[in-house]
Design a protein around this nucleic acid. Structure first.
Lengths: 153, 153
DNA sequence: GTTGATAATGCTATATTATAACAAGTTATT
DNA sequence: AATAACTTGTTATAATATAGCATTATCAAC
Protein backbone atom coordinates (compact mmCIF):
# COMPACT_ATOMS: atom_id res chain seq x y z
CA UNK A 1 0.00 0.00 0.00
CA UNK A 2 2.08 2.88 -1.26
CA UNK A 3 1.43 6.43 -0.17
CA UNK A 4 -0.61 8.41 -2.69
CA UNK A 5 1.14 11.05 -4.83
CA UNK A 6 -1.29 13.56 -3.44
CA UNK A 7 -0.48 12.76 0.14
CA UNK A 8 3.21 12.89 -0.67
CA UNK A 9 3.01 16.34 -2.17
CA UNK A 10 1.04 17.49 0.85
CA UNK A 11 3.82 16.31 3.09
CA UNK A 12 6.42 18.06 0.98
CA UNK A 13 4.46 21.29 0.93
CA UNK A 14 4.06 21.20 4.68
CA UNK A 15 7.79 20.63 5.02
CA UNK A 16 8.47 23.60 2.73
CA UNK A 17 6.18 25.74 4.79
CA UNK A 18 7.67 24.73 8.12
CA UNK A 19 11.21 25.31 6.91
CA UNK A 20 10.31 28.69 5.48
CA UNK A 21 8.78 29.71 8.77
CA UNK A 22 11.81 28.53 10.68
CA UNK A 23 14.26 30.24 8.37
CA UNK A 24 16.03 27.02 7.43
CA UNK A 25 16.66 25.76 3.95
CA UNK A 26 14.97 22.70 2.54
CA UNK A 27 17.40 22.34 -0.34
CA UNK A 28 16.78 20.15 -3.35
CA UNK A 29 18.94 17.42 -1.91
CA UNK A 30 17.23 17.45 1.44
CA UNK A 31 13.88 17.48 -0.21
CA UNK A 32 14.74 14.47 -2.32
CA UNK A 33 15.81 12.51 0.72
CA UNK A 34 12.64 13.53 2.53
CA UNK A 35 10.60 12.46 -0.46
CA UNK A 36 12.28 9.07 -0.63
CA UNK A 37 11.83 8.44 3.07
CA UNK A 38 8.20 9.51 3.06
CA UNK A 39 7.30 7.63 -0.10
CA UNK A 40 8.76 4.36 1.17
CA UNK A 41 6.57 1.58 2.46
CA UNK A 42 9.04 0.68 5.10
CA UNK A 43 11.67 2.55 7.03
CA UNK A 44 14.76 3.05 4.92
CA UNK A 45 18.36 2.57 5.95
CA UNK A 46 20.84 5.26 5.02
CA UNK A 47 22.31 3.06 2.34
CA UNK A 48 18.89 2.23 0.95
CA UNK A 49 18.41 5.93 0.51
CA UNK A 50 21.83 6.25 -1.04
CA UNK A 51 20.91 3.57 -3.52
CA UNK A 52 17.65 5.23 -4.48
CA UNK A 53 19.30 8.61 -4.82
CA UNK A 54 21.43 7.30 -7.67
CA UNK A 55 18.58 7.68 -10.09
CA UNK A 56 18.04 11.27 -9.03
CA UNK A 57 21.48 12.72 -8.70
CA UNK A 58 25.03 12.31 -9.69
CA UNK A 59 27.22 10.09 -7.56
CA UNK A 60 25.70 10.54 -4.12
CA UNK A 61 27.92 9.47 -1.24
CA UNK A 62 27.22 8.54 2.39
CA UNK A 63 27.88 12.04 3.72
CA UNK A 64 25.34 13.39 1.27
CA UNK A 65 22.71 11.14 2.76
CA UNK A 66 23.69 11.50 6.39
CA UNK A 67 23.81 15.28 6.17
CA UNK A 68 20.35 15.43 4.72
CA UNK A 69 19.09 13.00 7.34
CA UNK A 70 20.65 15.05 10.11
CA UNK A 71 18.86 18.14 8.90
CA UNK A 72 15.54 16.40 8.52
CA UNK A 73 15.83 14.89 11.99
CA UNK A 74 16.61 18.29 13.50
CA UNK A 75 13.56 19.71 11.82
CA UNK A 76 11.42 16.85 13.04
CA UNK A 77 10.46 15.91 9.51
CA UNK A 78 11.63 12.36 9.92
CA UNK A 79 12.37 10.02 12.80
CA UNK A 80 15.19 7.62 13.35
CA UNK A 81 14.34 4.12 14.46
CA UNK A 82 17.31 3.31 16.62
CA UNK A 83 16.60 -0.36 16.86
CA UNK A 84 16.44 -0.73 13.09
CA UNK A 85 19.07 1.77 12.03
CA UNK A 86 16.47 3.18 9.73
CA UNK A 87 14.51 6.30 9.02
CA UNK A 88 10.83 6.98 8.60
CA UNK A 89 8.73 10.00 7.75
CA UNK A 90 7.09 11.83 10.61
CA UNK A 91 3.32 11.62 10.74
CA UNK A 92 2.76 15.07 12.15
CA UNK A 93 5.79 17.32 11.81
CA UNK A 94 3.78 20.42 12.65
CA UNK A 95 3.80 19.72 16.36
CA UNK A 96 6.67 18.29 18.33
CA UNK A 97 5.95 15.05 20.10
CA UNK A 98 7.58 12.08 21.72
CA UNK A 99 7.64 9.68 18.85
CA UNK A 100 6.44 6.22 19.72
CA UNK A 101 6.68 3.27 17.40
CA UNK A 102 5.30 -0.22 17.11
CA UNK A 103 7.69 -2.32 15.09
CA UNK A 104 6.53 -5.71 13.88
CA UNK A 105 9.38 -8.18 13.64
CA UNK A 106 7.33 -10.48 11.44
CA UNK A 107 6.08 -8.26 8.62
CA UNK A 108 8.45 -5.37 9.19
CA UNK A 109 5.59 -2.93 9.42
CA UNK A 110 6.13 0.12 11.58
CA UNK A 111 3.40 2.36 12.90
CA UNK A 112 3.79 5.57 14.77
CA UNK A 113 1.45 6.03 17.70
CA UNK A 114 0.73 8.95 19.99
CA UNK A 115 -0.24 7.53 23.32
CA UNK A 116 -1.12 10.14 25.89
CA UNK A 117 -0.70 7.53 28.59
CA UNK A 118 2.88 6.90 27.56
CA UNK A 119 3.57 10.61 27.20
CA UNK A 120 2.09 11.10 30.63
CA UNK A 121 4.26 8.35 32.08
CA UNK A 122 7.34 9.92 30.57
CA UNK A 123 6.42 13.29 32.00
CA UNK A 124 5.94 11.77 35.44
CA UNK A 125 9.27 10.01 35.24
CA UNK A 126 10.95 13.29 34.36
CA UNK A 127 9.21 15.00 37.22
CA UNK A 128 10.29 12.51 39.83
CA UNK A 129 13.89 12.26 38.66
CA UNK A 130 14.58 15.81 37.59
CA UNK A 131 15.72 14.48 34.27
CA UNK A 132 15.04 16.67 31.25
CA UNK A 133 14.41 14.59 28.12
CA UNK A 134 15.34 16.08 24.76
CA UNK A 135 14.90 13.06 22.60
CA UNK A 136 12.74 10.17 23.71
CA UNK A 137 13.22 6.86 21.99
CA UNK A 138 10.15 4.71 22.37
CA UNK A 139 10.17 1.60 20.23
CA UNK A 140 8.11 -1.47 20.89
CA UNK A 141 9.45 -4.45 19.03
CA UNK A 142 7.05 -7.33 18.74
CA UNK A 143 4.21 -8.68 16.65
CA UNK A 144 1.41 -6.65 15.14
CA UNK A 145 -2.22 -7.71 15.41
CA UNK A 146 -2.32 -9.09 11.86
CA UNK A 147 0.76 -11.22 12.20
CA UNK A 148 -0.53 -12.74 15.42
CA UNK A 149 -3.38 -14.30 13.46
CA UNK A 150 -1.24 -16.03 10.89
CA UNK A 151 0.45 -19.31 11.85
CA UNK A 152 3.68 -17.88 10.46
CA UNK A 153 4.41 -16.01 7.29
CA UNK B 1 31.89 5.73 41.71
CA UNK B 2 32.74 2.19 40.89
CA UNK B 3 30.55 -0.70 41.87
CA UNK B 4 31.76 -2.49 44.99
CA UNK B 5 33.44 -5.87 44.65
CA UNK B 6 30.82 -7.26 46.97
CA UNK B 7 27.95 -6.00 44.88
CA UNK B 8 29.64 -7.33 41.76
CA UNK B 9 29.98 -10.81 43.17
CA UNK B 10 26.36 -10.73 44.27
CA UNK B 11 25.36 -9.96 40.72
CA UNK B 12 27.50 -12.77 39.39
CA UNK B 13 26.11 -15.21 41.90
CA UNK B 14 22.58 -14.28 41.01
CA UNK B 15 23.42 -14.76 37.35
CA UNK B 16 24.84 -18.18 38.11
CA UNK B 17 21.73 -19.09 40.00
CA UNK B 18 19.35 -17.91 37.31
CA UNK B 19 21.24 -19.72 34.59
CA UNK B 20 21.37 -22.91 36.61
CA UNK B 21 17.63 -22.75 37.17
CA UNK B 22 17.01 -22.17 33.50
CA UNK B 23 19.29 -24.93 32.36
CA UNK B 24 21.52 -22.65 30.34
CA UNK B 25 25.26 -22.33 30.62
CA UNK B 26 26.99 -19.30 31.96
CA UNK B 27 30.38 -20.27 30.63
CA UNK B 28 33.62 -18.62 31.69
CA UNK B 29 33.61 -16.42 28.64
CA UNK B 30 30.06 -15.25 29.15
CA UNK B 31 30.71 -14.65 32.80
CA UNK B 32 33.72 -12.50 32.04
CA UNK B 33 31.76 -10.36 29.64
CA UNK B 34 28.98 -10.03 32.18
CA UNK B 35 31.50 -9.04 34.82
CA UNK B 36 33.06 -6.39 32.60
CA UNK B 37 29.71 -4.92 31.68
CA UNK B 38 28.45 -4.88 35.25
CA UNK B 39 31.66 -3.50 36.71
CA UNK B 40 31.80 -0.62 34.25
CA UNK B 41 30.85 2.88 35.26
CA UNK B 42 29.32 3.56 31.91
CA UNK B 43 27.69 1.43 29.26
CA UNK B 44 30.29 -0.36 27.20
CA UNK B 45 30.40 -0.75 23.46
CA UNK B 46 31.16 -4.19 22.06
CA UNK B 47 34.62 -3.09 21.08
CA UNK B 48 35.25 -1.59 24.51
CA UNK B 49 34.49 -5.01 25.91
CA UNK B 50 36.72 -6.61 23.33
CA UNK B 51 39.53 -4.32 24.40
CA UNK B 52 39.10 -5.15 28.07
CA UNK B 53 38.89 -8.84 27.40
CA UNK B 54 42.43 -8.80 26.07
CA UNK B 55 43.81 -8.82 29.57
CA UNK B 56 41.69 -11.81 30.48
CA UNK B 57 41.87 -14.10 27.53
CA UNK B 58 43.85 -14.94 24.49
CA UNK B 59 43.06 -13.10 21.33
CA UNK B 60 39.36 -12.38 21.70
CA UNK B 61 37.57 -11.44 18.48
CA UNK B 62 34.32 -9.62 17.73
CA UNK B 63 32.27 -12.81 17.44
CA UNK B 64 33.50 -13.85 20.88
CA UNK B 65 32.08 -10.68 22.33
CA UNK B 66 28.89 -10.56 20.32
CA UNK B 67 28.05 -14.16 21.10
CA UNK B 68 28.44 -13.60 24.79
CA UNK B 69 26.37 -10.43 24.57
CA UNK B 70 23.66 -12.23 22.67
CA UNK B 71 23.44 -14.86 25.37
CA UNK B 72 23.41 -12.32 28.19
CA UNK B 73 20.71 -10.31 26.46
CA UNK B 74 18.57 -13.39 25.98
CA UNK B 75 18.90 -14.18 29.65
CA UNK B 76 18.03 -10.63 30.61
CA UNK B 77 21.30 -10.20 32.45
CA UNK B 78 22.24 -7.13 30.46
CA UNK B 79 20.43 -4.59 28.35
CA UNK B 80 21.35 -3.04 25.05
CA UNK B 81 21.09 0.70 24.74
CA UNK B 82 20.09 1.05 21.12
CA UNK B 83 20.73 4.75 20.90
CA UNK B 84 24.28 4.35 22.21
CA UNK B 85 25.20 1.01 20.65
CA UNK B 86 26.26 0.00 24.10
CA UNK B 87 25.52 -2.50 26.81
CA UNK B 88 24.78 -2.16 30.48
CA UNK B 89 24.15 -4.55 33.34
CA UNK B 90 20.55 -5.17 34.28
CA UNK B 91 19.52 -3.85 37.67
CA UNK B 92 17.09 -6.63 38.46
CA UNK B 93 17.55 -9.68 36.28
CA UNK B 94 15.37 -11.82 38.54
CA UNK B 95 12.14 -10.43 37.15
CA UNK B 96 11.49 -9.52 33.55
CA UNK B 97 10.57 -5.90 32.94
CA UNK B 98 10.33 -3.28 30.28
CA UNK B 99 13.69 -1.65 30.64
CA UNK B 100 13.56 2.11 30.75
CA UNK B 101 16.61 4.32 30.64
CA UNK B 102 17.52 7.92 31.30
CA UNK B 103 20.62 8.77 29.31
CA UNK B 104 22.40 12.02 30.06
CA UNK B 105 24.05 13.47 26.97
CA UNK B 106 26.23 15.76 29.10
CA UNK B 107 27.86 13.45 31.62
CA UNK B 108 27.13 10.18 29.87
CA UNK B 109 25.47 8.77 32.94
CA UNK B 110 22.74 6.20 32.39
CA UNK B 111 20.16 5.18 34.95
CA UNK B 112 17.62 2.45 34.66
CA UNK B 113 14.20 3.30 35.97
CA UNK B 114 11.06 1.27 36.51
CA UNK B 115 8.13 3.57 36.03
CA UNK B 116 4.78 1.94 36.55
CA UNK B 117 3.15 4.81 34.72
CA UNK B 118 5.22 4.16 31.62
CA UNK B 119 4.67 0.41 31.90
CA UNK B 120 0.97 1.10 32.23
CA UNK B 121 1.01 3.35 29.18
CA UNK B 122 2.76 0.67 27.19
CA UNK B 123 0.20 -1.89 28.28
CA UNK B 124 -2.64 0.39 27.27
CA UNK B 125 -1.07 1.02 23.89
CA UNK B 126 -0.77 -2.71 23.32
CA UNK B 127 -4.36 -3.20 24.36
CA UNK B 128 -5.76 -0.64 21.97
CA UNK B 129 -3.66 -1.67 18.98
CA UNK B 130 -3.52 -5.42 19.45
CA UNK B 131 0.21 -5.20 19.19
CA UNK B 132 2.20 -7.67 21.26
CA UNK B 133 5.51 -6.22 22.42
CA UNK B 134 8.39 -8.58 22.96
CA UNK B 135 11.16 -6.10 23.44
CA UNK B 136 10.37 -2.55 24.47
CA UNK B 137 13.05 0.05 23.88
CA UNK B 138 12.51 3.02 26.15
CA UNK B 139 15.40 5.46 26.17
CA UNK B 140 15.12 9.06 27.20
CA UNK B 141 18.05 11.08 25.96
CA UNK B 142 18.51 14.40 27.66
CA UNK B 143 20.10 16.04 30.65
CA UNK B 144 20.19 14.62 34.16
CA UNK B 145 19.28 16.71 37.20
CA UNK B 146 22.90 17.30 38.16
CA UNK B 147 24.03 18.46 34.77
CA UNK B 148 21.16 20.92 34.58
CA UNK B 149 22.65 22.80 37.53
CA UNK B 150 26.07 23.27 36.03
CA UNK B 151 26.58 26.03 33.46
CA UNK B 152 28.32 23.50 31.25
CA UNK B 153 30.90 20.91 31.98
C1' DG C 1 27.68 44.53 -7.13
C1' DT C 2 31.60 43.32 -4.43
C1' DT C 3 32.98 41.67 0.02
C1' DG C 4 32.77 38.76 3.76
C1' DA C 5 30.42 35.57 6.71
C1' DT C 6 27.71 31.43 6.99
C1' DA C 7 25.83 27.46 5.28
C1' DA C 8 25.72 23.64 2.10
C1' DT C 9 27.90 20.40 -0.93
C1' DG C 10 31.59 17.31 -3.14
C1' DC C 11 34.76 13.98 -2.32
C1' DT C 12 38.07 10.65 -0.38
C1' DA C 13 39.12 8.09 3.13
C1' DT C 14 38.30 5.71 7.24
C1' DA C 15 36.12 4.72 11.71
C1' DT C 16 32.73 2.00 14.10
C1' DT C 17 29.43 -1.58 14.73
C1' DA C 18 27.97 -6.20 13.56
C1' DT C 19 27.58 -10.71 11.18
C1' DA C 20 28.62 -14.81 7.89
C1' DA C 21 30.69 -19.05 7.35
C1' DC C 22 32.97 -22.97 8.54
C1' DA C 23 36.23 -25.65 11.31
C1' DA C 24 37.28 -27.42 15.81
C1' DG C 25 36.52 -28.31 20.42
C1' DT C 26 33.23 -29.31 24.69
C1' DT C 27 29.55 -31.12 27.21
C1' DA C 28 25.92 -34.05 28.42
C1' DT C 29 23.58 -38.13 27.30
C1' DT C 30 23.17 -42.66 25.26
C1' DA D 1 33.02 -44.68 22.95
C1' DA D 2 29.23 -42.71 19.83
C1' DT D 3 26.16 -39.24 19.20
C1' DA D 4 23.83 -34.88 19.26
C1' DA D 5 23.66 -30.30 20.74
C1' DC D 6 26.05 -26.53 22.01
C1' DT D 7 30.06 -23.54 22.41
C1' DT D 8 34.22 -21.56 20.78
C1' DG D 9 38.09 -20.28 17.32
C1' DT D 10 39.23 -17.94 13.29
C1' DT D 11 39.12 -15.37 9.08
C1' DA D 12 36.82 -12.46 6.41
C1' DT D 13 33.58 -9.05 5.36
C1' DA D 14 29.10 -6.64 5.72
C1' DA D 15 26.62 -2.65 7.34
C1' DT D 16 26.44 1.73 9.54
C1' DA D 17 28.45 6.25 10.31
C1' DT D 18 31.79 10.12 10.52
C1' DA D 19 36.30 12.97 9.80
C1' DG D 20 38.47 16.30 7.21
C1' DC D 21 39.23 19.41 3.81
C1' DA D 22 38.37 21.66 -0.64
C1' DT D 23 34.70 23.97 -3.20
C1' DT D 24 30.46 26.25 -4.13
C1' DA D 25 26.21 28.60 -3.03
C1' DT D 26 23.46 31.97 -0.37
C1' DC D 27 22.58 36.08 1.77
C1' DA D 28 23.25 40.13 4.33
C1' DA D 29 26.11 44.39 4.86
C1' DC D 30 28.59 47.58 2.94
Amino acid sequence: MAISPKKLSQILELAEKLCRERGVRLTAQRKQVLELVCAAEQPLGAYDILERLRSRMDNPTPPTVYRALEFLLEQGLIHKLESLHAFIGCSHPEHPHASQFLICSDCGDVSEIESDKIAEGLRKAEESTGFKAKRPVIELLGTCAECQLEPSE
